[in-house]
């Protein structure tokens, strides 16, 4: 077995044998599916004029991503932060002295776990959207087409959500490599994810709002848009690229620091 594959196996065992990652993944799943259930169940089309509101069913049903992203990021933070918290970094590096392999194994395992849960969660949400949404008024008669996975847009929304969650987890990992401290890495990641969405709720200047939305680490949520406005701040894929850029920069910086600084 190659060096890196061994490191990945060991990392997987590490994640499997402490309770926190399992809990986080379970809560991520519950958040995705549970919030999807709540939103699809309560969404209210009665106020809509004839012809229907431009309600974005696919995006609405994935509202849980707003919570799930933080949990995915936390999984990344803990993969690194927990080792610093318990001085395990030294043990890890004695077993796997090549720093690059250690980071790679953490990225691989975190991605694997997050993807597995994201795929499951998104599948659950899709099922909810198909079965429950018609009961909330999203019927063909009202002008809404049912969710259909053969539709490339729907594929992009649900597949893109999985990718987005994966990228956010890597952002968490990168921040933790830089900060080396679970608590402050958590603060940094949560602030990054929520600062701009909260701020854009208040500000009213459209050009500022667009700028902030383009700069936000959570810009990747644009991948969930199906009802695209005339001039969106970001196209779906451009949004995902912004998030991917954050993930790449933070993970690279974190890796460099990890390689060049004594633990």
């Amino acid at each position: 077995m190659s060096y890196t594959v061994r490191a990945i196996r060991a990392e997987l065992t590490k994640q499997r044998t402490v309770p926190a990652p399992t809990w986080l993944l379970a809560v991520t799943l519950v958040a995705l599916v549970g919030i999807g259930l709540a939103v699809v169940g309560t969404v209210d089309l009665e106020h809509c004029p004839p012809g229907g509101c431009p309600e974005d069913l696919a995006r609405h049903s994935l509202t849980g991503t707003v919570v799930a992203q933080a949990l995915a990021a936390l999984l990344g933070v803990l993969a690194v932060g927990d080792e610093y918290a318990h001085s395990l970094v030294g043990t890890t590096l004695v077993a796997v002295p090549r720093r690059g392999a250690v980071v790679l194994s953490k990225v691989a395992v975190t991605s694997l776990l997050v993807s597995a849960v994201a795929v499951t969660g998104v599948a659950g949400v899709y099922t909810i959207g198909r079965t429950m949404a018609p009961r909330s008024g999203f019927t063909t008669a009202n002008g809404y087409s049912p969710l259909d996975l053969s539709d490339p847009t729907i594929q992009r929304v649900f597949g893109g959500t999985v990718l987005y969650l994966l990228l956010v987890a890597i952002i968490g990992l990168g921040v933790a490599l830089l900060v080396r401290e679970t608590a402050w890495a958590t603060v940094a990641v949560l602030s990054m994810l929520y600062m701009i969405p909260v701020l854009t709720q208040f500000i009213s200047d459209p050009s500022w709002e667009r700028l902030l939305q383009r700069l936000s680490p959570s810009a990747g949520l644009a991948i969930q848009n199906t009802v695209v406005s005339a001039n969106p701040p970001l196209t779906p894929w451009a949004g995902l690229v912004v998030t991917a850029a954050y993930a790449a920069v933070l993970a690279t910086a974190g890796t460099l620091i990890f390689i060049h600084r004594d633990p």
Partner: peptide, 10 residues
């Protein structure tokens, strides 16, 4: 090196 370097929950 450091016998304390273990995850207490593992």
């Amino acid at each position: 090196l450091d016998a304390g370097a273990v995850h207490p929950a593992r």
